[in-house]
């Protein structure tokens, strides 16, 4: 089974895996995120279309209001 890492956690990879699907799998409920896949920024409008390659490293930053 091919894998990807999401913030250091290994999860199963599947064909046509989108950023949105990964967020759901990880139960990330924060609405405001910044996401990088293998060092490339994935903007929020591309969460449903960006396909994650096998063995990818996904980094998710949670943004919290306040300043």
């Amino acid at each position: 089974m091919e894998k990807i890492t999401v913030n250091g956690h290994l999860i199963d990879w599947e064909k046509n895996l989108t950023v949105r699907m990964v967020l759901k799998k990880m139960n990330y409920v924060f609405k405001m995120l910044v996401i990088k896949v293998n060092g490339t920024l994935v903007k929020k409008e591309d969460y449903d279309t960006f396909i994650i390659p096998k063995n990818a490293e996904v980094k998710v930053i949670h943004l919290i209001s306040g300043g």
């Binding site: 405001m32 995120l33 910044v34 920024l41 903007k43 929020k44 943004l63 209001s65």
Partner: peptide
Amino acid sequence: EALDKAEVKQMLIENWTE
């Protein structure tokens, strides 16, 4: 980045990083 609202933080970070 020293903004208040998370959605504006997101906009700034995405634009800067792009």
